[in-house]
Amino acid sequence: MGQHRHADDPHVFVLSGRVDGADQLVPSGSPAAAAEQLSRWIRQDSAARISWVVNQAWQDWILLAARLRPARGLGESLRVTHLFTFEPGDQVGPRLLSQCGAEFSWWALEFGDELDTPLGAPCVACQLTVLPAQAETQKALPPSGADTDIDTWNGWDRYYQVLGWPVEEFDGRLMLVADSDNDDDVTVLSVPADLAEQVQTCLARTDMQAPLLQLPGLPAEALFVVARTSVPVTMPPGVHRVPVGIPLPPSTTAEGPARWITSPGDVQLGRSRDLDVLACIYRLSRPQQQELVS
């Protein structure tokens, strides 16, 4: 990532302008301090001409984190932290375009004291643009019905283990034991069944379809089995991590057999992360609105 300092100039921003007839030039190392200085100039002189620029002496691109300022009627769910990237010499504002494509006026935003300081729940779509890309993987085919093996599960247990999934046999079922409190690299997201198909279509646009499981006892839910990330995310309504063991095919429950809607053999393994699923849900559920604040 960028954010490197120049040895001879520790200030990432240069603020300039003409205020009350006098020229101003102020360096700043803090996004919050820079925004506050510009606001003071505007309060001092409503006709002030001001400029906020990334220092040309800065060695690399920078990442700013900001969210909407508190306002009456503006819920916390809309005050997610967006990310903005700039190169040395770039103008910051008066309009800022976030990594997810939303546009803001700088004076409508609350900035952190440091570069890329998180201020609250992150914008998932912005996060996806700066997280390292997943490595390409190959499809792994499940055991065929004709395969024979000495174990109870006819090779399925070893198959799931090859995928990197923590599986255990319990009470006559093959269980995925990933949960929200351990350090496993896999997690399970429960999504309303009527939304899951739309999410899978969204994921398919970037070849990130995920294994999708249906349990007969949960007909209104579908379960995405995806790679886990460490980024804290606010869950959308109706979506949650499943913190208990999940029976995997070919297990049978009291209500009937578990079944794959999209099996692991039909997708690129490890391509889809929890953030990818959540980003699609946010895109599908939020209004298609680029201009959030004028």
Rank of each mutant, 00 (worst) to 15 (best):
Q91A: 10
Q91V: 15
V92N: 04
G93H: 03
G93E: 04
G93M: 12
G93V: 06
P94Y: 06
R95N: 07
R95K: 10
R95M: 01
L96W: 04
L97C: 11
L97H: 07
S98F: 10
Q99M: 12
Q99G: 12
Q99L: 14
G101C: 15
G101S: 05
A102L: 10
A102I: 07
A102S: 03
E103D: 10
F104R: 04
F104G: 08
S105L: 06
W106R: 14
W106Q: 12
W106F: 08
W106P: 00
W107V: 13
E110S: 09
E110W: 13
G112W: 08
G112Q: 03
G112S: 12
E114S: 15
E114R: 14
L115M: 05
D116T: 01
D116V: 02
P118I: 05
L119W: 13
L119H: 02
L119N: 05
A121F: 11
A121M: 07
A121S: 10
P122I: 14
P122Y: 06
P122D: 15
C123W: 01
C123N: 04
V124I: 14
A125V: 11
A125K: 09
C126Q: 08
C126G: 10
Q127T: 11
Q127R: 11
Q127I: 12
L128S: 03
T129F: 15
T129R: 14
L131E: 15
L131N: 15
L131Y: 01
L131S: 13
L131K: 13
L131T: 11
P132W: 06
P132F: 01
A133L: 14
A135M: 08
A135G: 11
E136S: 11
E136G: 11
E136L: 07
E136C: 03
T137S: 08
T137I: 02
T137Q: 09
Q138H: 14
Q138Y: 02
K139R: 14
A140E: 03
A140I: 00
L141C: 03
L141E: 08
L141T: 02
L141I: 07
P142R: 05
P143M: 06
P143L: 05
P143F: 00
P143Q: 00
S144Y: 02
G145Q: 06
G145F: 12
G145S: 06
A146I: 10
D147W: 09
D147F: 04
T148E: 05
D149R: 07
D149E: 03
I150A: 05
D151P: 11
D151Q: 05
T152C: 12
W153C: 00
W153S: 02
N154Y: 01
N154E: 07
N154D: 02
G155D: 12
G155S: 09
D157F: 01
D157Q: 06
R158W: 01
R158E: 01
R158L: 02
Y159S: 00
Y159G: 00
Y160I: 02
Q161T: 12
Q161R: 09
V162H: 09
L163S: 04
L163F: 04
W165N: 06
W165Y: 13
